[in-house]
Design a protein around this nucleic acid. Structure first.
Lengths: 254, 254
DNA sequence: ATTTTTATGTGCGGTACCGTACAGAGCGCG
DNA sequence: CGCGCTCTGTACGGTACCGCACATAAAAAT
């Protein structure tokens, strides 16, 4: 098992809003109007951007963090509904007019995001310009992801879903190194921790991943894609179709 | 087992567009502009309003039919994503800008719907008036339903899900009588037909439903709600919150 | 009336996952 | 160094659901 690199020290100044693909896709005039009001915030692992039922005060555009939309049931069981990284936004309900959702948003990979006050987002949206159309398309991408998650939960094995989940995370990270315990993954997938342990063990034996105490390194992404269910590629293809502006970024594999 | 009433002969002229709650909720001026272009269409059981990937030509506002949004996987396995009746619309993707979706829309209970050409819908939407805001709220309701479906698929038993499904259908019908085989229900839920048979048998023994060869009658709705998972009531509460204009309609139980 | 089709009931072995329990292993910290 | 905590590995019985096979029953077709 390789020695894992310690957390790099990141200069906040390097986090341009346009690292977020949605912000990057906006027209220049919208950017000029909006960017002065963006606030760079650091999001530690586990932080809740909002809880179920909360009135949304901000929307978040991740630059290098990953946020999971989680649904938690009455008995405490949970399941992940969507994964959002530099390709998306947290707080769609705000522009939909609902002000709140039945889900919660949890930081799954620490990093930075650009934050915008809800009122500013709404007034930009209400200009019915570029932001409106971008948000609509993003919403459809979100809907696609949720629908696919529903089907995946019904029909696919833990191992397949773990592969899908790793790929979703990988696409939203700069390297092939995830900081994540099996316990947390189990929460996301809505399964037992032991189930994740066994699936991860099988992947390790096949040389697809290395891992140790909260760190996972994907060593064979191609194989991971083979072992994953179709759900990953279907969602990816549809997202690329709906949001072609989110340019392709390389997935480097060591 | 009671003798089941034969299909009533319905006069199409009685199907006013405003039987659909979304159309009803629109401002009078929007209605005046739109209603002349609505076309009443009869939708037989099993008809596909669109297939996965189809370019959407129309949107549909059901008056007394029920349409299921189904996702079908590569291997033929399927799962229901959403149920739409007189409370909703089929074809959200059209206004989102995607033009198509990865799901298909199948008529689950025969009846009528008001159909509107995609272009007319888009131009009305692009006036950025009442229709825009209604559609946004409806989209959030849809998102909520899909998210809940994902969680339900993960955590709840077939019996619980069958109860939920019956309640969803019941809310969108005028009486407590469903025309639906267990085979089709199994397709919707993404489970084996035998699983539905066993769950339905248990419900029958508890006096909750009567059924026979493609007909189901709910005889104890209150009990059905008790046996259902929380998913039904959560979605209902959230939908009522988001779309309060869809007035309460009685669920008469014989 | 007989055959065919469709819908439902039942049984059986297989399996994926669950709940629980507990054992080891890596790491932080006094 | 030893102690404790967190993370991971393993085992075991239980169960919900699956795939399959086939029986029964109601409706439809001939």
């Amino acid at each position: 098992m390789p020695k894992l690199a310690s957390q790099q020290c990141v200069d906040p100044k390097l986090h341009k809003p346009t690292e977020n693909q949605l912000l990057k896709a906006l027209d220049a005039d919208v950017q000029e109007r909006l960017f002065p009001h963006l606030e760079l915030v650091e999001l530690p692992l586990g932080k809740a951007l909002y809880e179920s039922g909360d009135v949304l005060r901000h929307v978040y555009f991740p630059t290098d963090c990953i946020v999971s939309l989680l649904y938690v049931m009455e008995n405490g069981a949970s399941a992940e509904i969507s994964v959002v990284g530099h390709d998306g936004m947290i707080g769609v309900a705000l522009i939909m007019g609902g002000e709140s959702t039945t889900s919660r948003a949890i930081v799954q990979s620490a990093g930075y995001a650009s934050r915008l006050a809800g009122q500013r987002m709404k007034s930009e949206f209400n200009r019915h310009g570029d932001m409106l159309h971008l948000m609509l398309r993003y919403s459809q991408a979100l809907i696609t992801q949720m629908a696919q998650t529903a089907v995946c939960n019904r029909h696919h094995s833990i191992e397949q879903q773990l592969c899908r989940w790793l790929l979703l995370s990988l696409d939203r990270l700069k390297d092939n190194h995830l900081v994540m315990t099996q316990e947390l993954i189990a929460n996301m997938l809505g399964v037992r921790r032991e189930g994740v342990t066994e699936a991860a063990g099988r992947l390790h034996r096949q040389g697809v991943i290395d891992y140790s105490r909260g760190h996972i390194i994907v060593t064979d992404r191609a194989r991971l894609e083979q072992l994953s269910c179709e759900c990953y590629s279907v969602v990816k293809a549809e997202t690329d179709r709906l949001l072609p502006l989110s340019r392709h970024h390389p997935h480097s594999v060591s």
